[in-house]
Design a protein around this nucleic acid. Structure first.
Length: 662
RNA sequence: GCUGCUGUAGCUCAGUGGUAGAGCGCACCCUUGGUAAGGGUGAGGCCGAGAGUUCAAUUCUCUCCAGCAGCACCA
């Protein structure tokens, strides 16, 4: 092959083979050297693990791998090109005054943030998509160039791309700005690359939705229009993905909650749940399960007031930092006069607030009487009902509500007990999540934020303590800088919902600040007063959110111990009504949540309704035969088969199976 | 809170500048049917709230409220 320079470099391929090339050889040339078909399929390369364009020259010995569309990396590069080249250019063609901001890839797709002169709606996507196809058909080569800061700025200034100029101006580098052009079309985009060498490699894509997003993610900045899309290797993969999205929609807890008659929301109490009888069964079963768990783990359950004078919130620091998210109530008897104001101006001199958290109240219990170091740790648990005035746009079904019940607890302990208590908590949460069948749990250790209370030594100690606990519990976790609470670092347990959105459920937070602010103390071995450390912790997080995630993760088919209706006795004809009643009574007596369906409907209809709508795990079908033989025909949810079983034995088995896991 | 979209029967959704329609559900009747929709009849709506344009508004415009998607927020 042609020698680019005298100096030779060694390129190591993934199979271990080593080849020699002149310095300055490109990834494409190497791919061509390996095989023609590989060169044709090549999208980019990795050089020592770093993604590079095919046209980038290589000057030193390196390990090289060719990226094709078969790999996840290749797919991501293709998506990136669809966003930055196809979508961006299509938008500029149709809306010349649009200003491009950024267009990264995300899981399963990509987006591009763009400023438009007039609002864009979903209906406009079709035209943009059509334009994208046109551009794709052109098969234009994508040409990369490296440019100085001045040239890059000039190029974007000419095009009125003020956001791109902002990015370049803020960049630390002096030059080597990568611009990608499409042949001679005049279109350019700034990008870290790599990109496809050619638009011909683009697979199947679809634009999905538009939404607003702040420039640089800051709500003080302008809102840009974000166009979301997805791209796949071929139509089959694309359709597969779109089908998946549809399926996920069917698992949405808001939809299932209505279908299964679990709960509802309405305007007059937005963001707060009306639990229906069936939904409240789940709620109660979960609460009782956690109650048994924390009892076993040495917690004492308490109940604290809903409405507390703001003096306490001032003292705890919530009033200063968090007031805008609290519901504040004047402590005055309201006037019944239709004309005048409901409360007087004076009423605002004494304010109360609905508690947004339980911790200050738990400190009040701790503070009653004098505590000795021998008393510690003290673990106070509460199914605390809290109110938070959340931003309206944040509300989301059961996942984000304004009134929530946490399976909250606070552990007051000595500093030397932090690790032990943290390890015990990690064990507890591991067991609970295992009982619930959650495997895809992401654990995050959130470290000190910029604005924080407490000295660096205290933070060092706190972070190390949590880290040690996580390691001891054998958990894999990610560390996130700056994400901790102002009063201490925290461990967060995130679980994904049906559509892949991640929600924080369990949490463990160390707090050295609140005991100080609320003057909690214990008498140490030395006879002197000491500050206890506070561990805030929740396993499920909030019952509301956890139930939402639970419903989505099992598509409404809850495990038997949580199922609102565990068994329906359904008759084939009314000749079995009497026997069905008898079976129903037996089930109730055995503690099974049962329903009786003796409606004048066909058995097909009943089976369909209880299965598809109610997600009832067990159907006992009874007809003349069963009444005669004192049996039931058991049909399990999701099964086509049925088994005939003696009624007493069937009920005994069901009772056995319906035992909670703890 | 910000941007965009949506709001019609209990639910899912059509539709129109002259105050409304379907399917499911519900009620009643027929049907007694053996494991994912048997048939008929009927009731049911201030077309999210308020204002404006118009002879006339559920329909067009504006404001508000709520929901949805995303962003920001989540002590």
């Amino acid at each position: 092959m042609e020698q680019k320079a005298e100096k030779q470099i060694q390129i190591t391929l993934p199979d271990g083979a080593s080849r020699s090339y002149g310095a300055g050889v490109t990834g494409l040339e190497i791919a061509e050297d390996i095989s023609k078909s590989l060169a044709k399929a090549a999208l980019a390369v990795t050089v020592d693990g770093v993604q590079r364009d095919l046209c980038d020259p290589i000057y030193a010995d390196a390990a090289l791998a060719v990226i094709t569309l078969d790999s996840e990396e290749g797919l991501e590069i293709m998506r990136h090109t669809v966003a930055a080249q196809l979508l961006a250019r299509a938008v500029k063609n149709l809306y010349p005054s649009a200003k491009l901001a950024i267009g990264p890839t995300i899981e399963n797709g990509f987006y591009y943030d763009i400023e438009f002169e007039s609002p864009l709606s979903t209906d406009d996507l079709e035209a943009i998509e059509k334009e994208m196809r046109k551009i794709k058909e052109s098969g234009a080569p994508i040409i990369k160039s490296l440019n100085s800061k001045a040239d890059t700025l000039a190029a974007f200034k000419e095009r009125g791309e003020t956001y791109k100029m902002d990015i370049v101006e803020r960049a630390e580098q002096a030059d080597d700005f990568q611009l990608y052009a499409q042949g001679e079309t005049g279109f350019i985009d700034l990008c870290r690359g790599p990109h496809l060498p050619n638009l011909k490699h683009v697979g199947a894509f679809k634009l999905l939705k538009v939404a607003g997003a702040y420039w640089r993610g800051d709500s003080a900045n302008a809102v840009l229009t974000r166009i979301y899309g997805t791209a796949w290797r071929n139509d089959k993969e694309l359709n597969n993905y779109l089908h998946q999205l549809e399926e996920a929609e069917k698992r949405d807890h808001r939809k299932l909650g209505q279908q299964m008659d679990l709960y509802h929301f309405q305007e007059e109490a937005m963001g707060s749940v009306f639990w229906h009888p069936k939904g409240y069964v789940i709620y109660n079963a979960l609460e009782q399960y956690i109650r048994r768990r924390v009892n076993d783990a040495g917690y004492k359950e308490v109940k604290t007031p809903q409405l507390i004078d703001n003096k306490l919130w001032v003292a705890s620091g919530h009033w200063g930092k968090y007031r805008e998210n609290m519901f504040v109530v004047p402590d005055e008897i309201p006037s019944t006069d239709d004309e005048g104001p409901v409360v007087s101006d004076k009423a605002f001199e004494k304010l109360m607030a609905l508690k947004p958290m339980n911790c200050p109240a738990h400190v009040q219990i701790f503070n009653q009487g004098i505590k000795s170091y021998r008393d510690l740790p003290i673990r106070l648990a509460e199914f605390g009902c809290c109110h938070r005035n959340e931003a309206h746009g944040a509300l989301h079904g059961l996942m984000r509500v304004r009134q929530m019940t946490q399976d909250d607890a606070h552990i007051f302990c000595r500093e030397d007990q932090i690790t032990e208590e943290s390890v015990a908590f990690c064990e507890l949460i591991k067991n609970v999540y295992a009982d619930m069948g959650f495997e895809d749990v992401r654990v995050v250790l959130a470290l000190r934020p910029e604005a924080r209370a407490g000295s660096d030594e205290v933070w060092d100690k706190a972070e190390a303590g949590l880290q040690e606990a996580l390691v001891k519990a054998g958990l894999e976790f990610e560390e996130e800088e700056g994400e901790g609470a102002f009063y201490g670092p925290k461990v967060e347990y995130h679980i994904r919902d049906a559509i892949g959105r991640s929600w924080q459920c369990g949490t463990l937070q160390l707090d050295f600040v609140l005991p100080e602010r609320l003057d909690a103390s214990y008498i140490g071995e030395d006879g002197a007063k000491h500050r206890p450390v506070m561990l805030h912790r929740a396993v499920l997080g909030t019952l509301e959110r956890f139930i939402g995630i639970l419903i989505e993760s099992c598509a409404g088919k809850l495990p038997l111990w949580l199922a609102p209706v565990q068994c329906v006795v359904a008759t084939v004809t009314d000749s079995a009504d009497e026997y069905a009643r008898e079976v129903f009574v037996m089930l109730k007596a055995a503690g099974i949540r049962a329903e009786l369906d003796i409606r004048n409907e066909k058995i097909n209809y009943k089976v369909r309704e209880h299965s598809a709508e109610g997600k009832v795990p067990n159907l006992f079908v009874v007809g003349a035969r069963e009444a005669e033989e004192r049996t039931v025909a058991i049909r399990r949810l999701g099964s086509k088969d049925q088994s005939i079983e003696n009624v007493e034995r069937a009920i005994a088995a069901l009772v056995q199976e319906a035992q909670p896991p703890f």
